[in-house]
Simulated scan of single mutants.
Amino acid sequence: MREELIVPKCHYPWPTVNSPIANAFDDEEKDWYDNDYTFISEEGIRRCKPQFLSRVATYMNPTCDSIERMRPCARMMIYITLFDDYFGMTPAKELEVIADRVYEVMMGEDPREDEIGILRQMAAARKEWLANGMPQFWIERISINFYEFIMYGIAEEIPFKQAENRTYPLLAHYLSFRRYSIGMMPYGDLTDPAINYALPVHVYNHPIMQRCRELLCLLIAVQNDFVSLKKEIEIDHECLNIIFVLRNQYKLSYQEACTEAMRIHNAHAQELDHLHNNLPDFGEFQEAAYDHVYHIKLHVSGCANWYYNSGTSRYEHKAFIIPQYGKEGDDAIIPHSIFVKE
């Protein structure tokens, strides 16, 4: 009989803000699935619709009350998530070709009629961002970060996913690629269209600002690992979860690994809060830099709010789509002996 496991919830030393347009794209996203995600099976699309992935954009950008500015962000939240779900088992050489094409479309090329529909969503988002006044340097920024999400994140996970025997990375290695594969480097760029202000390049590239973005990625990676643990604990080949990594590297119980993962998470949250309140001198851009990191913090608490309060079915049994190189039997069985408690 499995020992009962208490999985902690994530909390933050800053407030959670609720979006005034939290559910605004619930109907639109169904049309997006039906029109542009037909490379996914009908069953896969059926699984996607109750996940409310568009709400991630609104929950994580809760100060934005503009449907027009948030629409391309909602598109991206869906296509970045389903890109990972669908191409997460794709061989690295094939994935590199896909990454190059994604970059071309995000930067300005229109997809051909015979190309996969997810590219149409990327092109539509790019055109909407430009129509809403986002500069080309920002388009290049998010395009590069999406490319790195694929090549430094998804591609680095593939050897572990394809290994015949379960193989765990060391914690340092895991965090080095997980901060890319969680997708928050490009998603963090959505702060700019959400608040209708593109952070200047020299401010954005400052090491402190980049560390804040890295902390965003690490915090949401641990959030995600806690939430997905209930599903992943029953997958025989699953190794890419910080709980599993800690348990293997330090010979911990599941409960001890949860405690250590939360300690790491809380240290990162404290660091982000400290950096926000002690930013370097950015001169005339001081207020903009402070506001940018403030919204990074809202991304973190907003994502937790979505996990716990949006009603998403994403982490239920048979909620994920089957990957391009996956099979139906990859689905997990969620045991009744696991439960979530604050």
Results as ranks from 00 to 15, higher is better:
R120W: 13
G133L: 11
M76R: 11
D225V: 11
D330A: 04
E94W: 08
C258T: 14
R120Q: 13
Y187W: 11
G326R: 08
Y290V: 05
W129Q: 02
G133H: 05
P15K: 15
G108E: 02
R101L: 03
G153W: 13
I243F: 11
F244I: 10
D225G: 13
T63C: 13
R263M: 05
S313V: 09
R179S: 08
V245K: 13
S253C: 14
H292A: 03
E94I: 08
H292I: 03
T312S: 11
I154K: 01
L275Q: 03
P186M: 09
E96A: 09
A57G: 10
H274L: 08
S310D: 03
L218V: 14
P135T: 01
K127Q: 12
H265Q: 15
A198K: 06
E164D: 14
R263F: 06
I154D: 00
D85F: 03
Q121K: 11
Q249N: 11
G153R: 10
E316W: 07
A172S: 06
P91W: 09
A319H: 05
Y86L: 00
R69M: 02
A155Y: 02
P111V: 06
H173Q: 15
E148L: 15
Y12I: 02
D291F: 08
Y174R: 09
Q162Y: 12
H299R: 09
C239A: 12
P13E: 00
C73R: 12
V102I: 07
W306F: 02
M134I: 01
Y308S: 05
E68L: 08
M89L: 13
C217D: 10
N35D: 08
C217R: 11
Y59P: 01
Q51Y: 04
Q121T: 15
N196W: 03
D114A: 06
P169G: 10
R166Q: 09
D31C: 13
V222N: 11
S301Y: 05
N266R: 00
E238A: 15
E328V: 04
Y197L: 10
E113V: 11
I154G: 00
R166K: 15
I80C: 07
D36Y: 12
I338M: 10
S19A: 07
Q223P: 06
V56R: 01
H265Y: 08
K9G: 05
L275A: 06
Y59F: 11
D27Q: 14
R211C: 01
H276M: 01
A288E: 09
R141L: 14
P111K: 09
F177H: 02
H268S: 13
P20N: 12
R166N: 04
M106C: 10
Q51R: 14
S66Q: 02
L119E: 02
G302T: 04
L216A: 12
A304R: 12
I195S: 01
S181W: 01
R179I: 04
I78A: 08
S181N: 08
D281F: 06
